[in-house]
Simulated assay, not measured.
Amino acid sequence: MDQVALAETPAARCAYYRHTCDLPAGFHPAIGRIIVRAGFVGAITMPAALGQQVHDDLIHHRNPLGPIISHVRSKRWTYLIRPDLPDDVRLFAELFRLNVSIVPIGGEIALPSPADVHAGLREWIVPPQNTFRPSGVAIVDTVRVCRNAGLR
């Protein structure tokens, strides 16, 4: 994250995301947001409390963590993933009932930008430091484990 902290302009931050993390990031000056279009990278968004449970379960089982974004105001977390989830209506319905969503191909994934630090919009829970992103299937499986643990 030290390199991201040093990237205090949108252009520098985008360059870091692109070159170090292999995230095809672009900057929209009109809205002041750095985004990635889902496709090459995927994303799963969930309530922060569930996101924390998933995070803790992954650590407990010694699974590597990939990049995780906190959407501070909406209290949601987004896990950046490898886009290996099936296009399955039953899966989307199951996750919808848990208030979890998969960003569709072509959808925008907002990444933390230098301006977000002062606005309290987005921040990294686990910053990207390289090209690693966990399997989307593994994150969904962990969501299920955490959900089932909460039902006991």
Rank of each mutant, 00 (worst) to 15 (best):
T78Y: 08
I68K: 01
H28I: 03
P10Q: 10
H61L: 04
D84Y: 03
L50S: 07
H55N: 12
H55K: 15
I81R: 02
R152E: 14
V4E: 10
P114H: 02
C14A: 12
N99V: 11
S113H: 09
P104N: 14
I68W: 03
N63F: 12
H71E: 07
D88M: 13
D57L: 05
D84F: 09
V145M: 07
Y79K: 00
H60A: 11
I34F: 07
M1S: 15
A30F: 04
V89M: 15
L58E: 11
R37N: 10
P83Y: 10
D57G: 13
Q53T: 13
G150A: 09
P47Q: 10
G120V: 14
V36G: 00
V72M: 13
S74I: 03
H28M: 09
G136D: 06
L98S: 07
H60R: 10
P83S: 12
A15M: 11
A43C: 11
H61P: 01
V103Y: 02
I81V: 06
A7W: 00
S113Y: 08
R13I: 01
D22H: 15
D88L: 05
L6G: 10
E123I: 10
F96K: 05
M46L: 12
S113L: 00
T9I: 00
I102Q: 05
Q52W: 13
A138H: 04
F92D: 12
V36I: 14
A30K: 15
Y16H: 01
N99K: 07
R97M: 12
D87P: 05
V126L: 02
Q129G: 13
Y79S: 11
S113W: 04
G26N: 15
S101D: 12
V140C: 12
S135D: 06
A49Y: 09
F132K: 02
V100W: 09
P10V: 06
G39C: 15
A25F: 02
L121C: 05
A25R: 08
E123L: 08
A115P: 02
V143I: 07
F40I: 03
F96C: 08
R73S: 15
A119F: 13
R18M: 02
I31H: 13
G136Y: 07
I44M: 06
Y17S: 00
H19C: 03
F132Q: 02
V4P: 02
D22L: 04
V117W: 00
N63R: 14
A12R: 00
P47L: 06
R33E: 09
G120H: 08
I59Y: 02
A115Q: 12
V140N: 07
C21V: 00
L91A: 13
M46S: 06
N99F: 12
A30C: 08
A12L: 00
R82I: 08
G26M: 05
L23Q: 04
N63E: 15
S70T: 08
